[in-house]
Amino acid sequence: MKPAPFDYVRPGTLEEALQALAGHPEAKILAGGQSLVPLLSMRLAAPAVLVDINDLPDLDHVRADADGVRIGALARHAEVLKDAEVARVQPLVPLALANVAHPTIRNRGTTVGSLVHADAAAEMPMVLRLLDGSVDVAGPGGRRTIPAAELYVGPLESSLHHDEIAVEAFFPALGAGSGVAFEEIARRHGDYAMCGVAAVVTVEGDRVVSAKAGYLSVSDIPAVVDLTEALDGSVDATALAAAAAAALEELDPETDIHATADYRAHLATVLTARVVTAAYDDARTRAGGSR
């Protein structure tokens, strides 16, 4: 099928873009189009106006410093993925991005677009939640920062207002003594995963002092579970089993055409043990390397 008719504007400044949105309650922003165009072609969405933000200046930056990584609204997944400084400051970002779609989709799709599209099956919203990042948005009343914990409110629903444009995402740097890992199970590499888990583990010596895991495709919004208490300092088999059980207690795996709830629970259990172990090893390696 083809998209329904719409008016198209491609403003050259942020102010004009905000005005275009303010003027049309049924306007939608077009960034990379890798999620929106399929929705339009299938007529799951039929906005009256598309505001193409691809000509807005100064929004394609990818910057990394001691605080973390800042990604502009027009930075494509592929640009972020190949940035060596990003990988150094927050290695979980490229670990996850390598699982976002195929290279061809990553050449056009934006990371910020993916964050605000708020798909619970997508990698980056979960990573933003897990790392306690944030998204900066511009609106008619100025700018505000939305912490990841307040960004995801429902399936494919973010807390952005209709007349706001996300301008930049912030992923905090990896802390001292911490390590990360990411793994997902998809039918084919590049497909949306049936279940994916990321972990951040912080160690002192060989003891775990904090551990958190993020889950994608398990609940209808990206979910994060604190596993510190369940692990009780260790990553032996008993601790990992306790962590997976604790995670499942907080998650509510759902059945859809891709996988049953039981199968998702099984994947979450297996992946929790794997990524917590891998993040622990990563933390130990990094601590060793910097000594």
């Binding site: 198209y8 077009l30 165009v37 399929p38 072609s41 592929a78 290279p103 061809t104 989709i105 056009r108």
Partner: peptide
């Protein structure tokens, strides 16, 4: 809808799906 890759063209040298881009863009 972006899945099969048959429509892939190069845009400024980079492969992209022509079915996920508008001609105006």
């Amino acid at each position: 809808h972006g899945v099969c890759g048959a429509c892939t063209v190069l845009v400024d040298g980079e492969p992209m799906r022509s079915c996920l881009m508008f001609a105006v863009s």
